[in-house]
Amino acid sequence: MFCYRCGKANEDDNRFCKYCGTMIRPPAVVVPEDLNYFPPNPDALWAYYLGIASLLCGITGIPAIVMGIRGLRYAKLHPEARGEVHAWVGIIGGALTVLCVFMLIIGVVISACL
């Protein structure tokens, strides 16, 4: 292994260059085997955030529904990722927002016709 700073050859198991002292190989990171890390379900997380945002401001309902459906599909293909609850929060929040906006539009149209 060659040092990237001074360019001199070192043994492969050296962590530091024996000529200039620069770290040439970072220490190994040991992850415990009992650590249950589940990769996130990005679509479900987006659905969750968009669903909450749609309930607060009423403009992101349809994207929340779409991302929620994608999140459910991802959770079905990758059960270790989970995220079904986040996806459902996005779908329900988005659907409620779309329903409220639709009812508001119908109310405005009816009141304009009267």
Rank of each mutant, 00 (worst) to 15 (best):
M1P: 05
M1G: 02
F2S: 02
C3I: 01
Y4R: 04
R5H: 15
R5P: 03
C6W: 08
K8Q: 10
K8I: 05
A9W: 06
A9Y: 08
A9N: 12
E11T: 07
D12Q: 10
N14Q: 15
R15G: 13
C17T: 05
C17Y: 06
K18R: 13
K18L: 08
Y19S: 09
Y19E: 07
Y19H: 13
C20Y: 01
C20R: 08
M23E: 12
R25G: 06
P26C: 05
P27T: 11
A28N: 06
V30A: 09
V31G: 03
P32T: 10
P32C: 05
E33H: 04
L35V: 14
L35C: 00
F38V: 15
F38C: 10
F38P: 08
P39N: 04
P40M: 15
P42I: 11
D43E: 13
D43K: 04
D43F: 11
D43A: 14
A44V: 14
A44N: 08
W46T: 09
A47L: 10
A47F: 07
A47W: 04
Y49W: 07
Y49G: 01
L50R: 03
G51R: 02
G51K: 01
G51Q: 01
I52R: 13
S54L: 03
S54T: 09
L55T: 04
C57E: 02
C57L: 06
G58W: 01
T60Y: 11
T60S: 12
G61M: 08
A64F: 01
A64V: 06
I65S: 00
I65N: 01
M67N: 13
G68H: 03
R70P: 03
L72K: 03
R73F: 11
Y74Q: 08
A75M: 03
K76A: 14
L77T: 05
P79W: 14
P79R: 15
P79G: 13
R82Q: 09
G83S: 09
E84T: 13
H86R: 02
H86Y: 00
H86E: 01
A87V: 08
W88R: 12
G90R: 05
I91K: 14
G94N: 02
A95L: 15
A95H: 01
L96K: 08
C100W: 08
V101M: 07
V101R: 07
V101L: 03
L104R: 15
I105G: 03
I106S: 04
G107W: 00
V109K: 12
V109T: 14
V109F: 12
S111A: 13
S111R: 12
A112V: 00
A112R: 15
L114Q: 11
L114F: 11
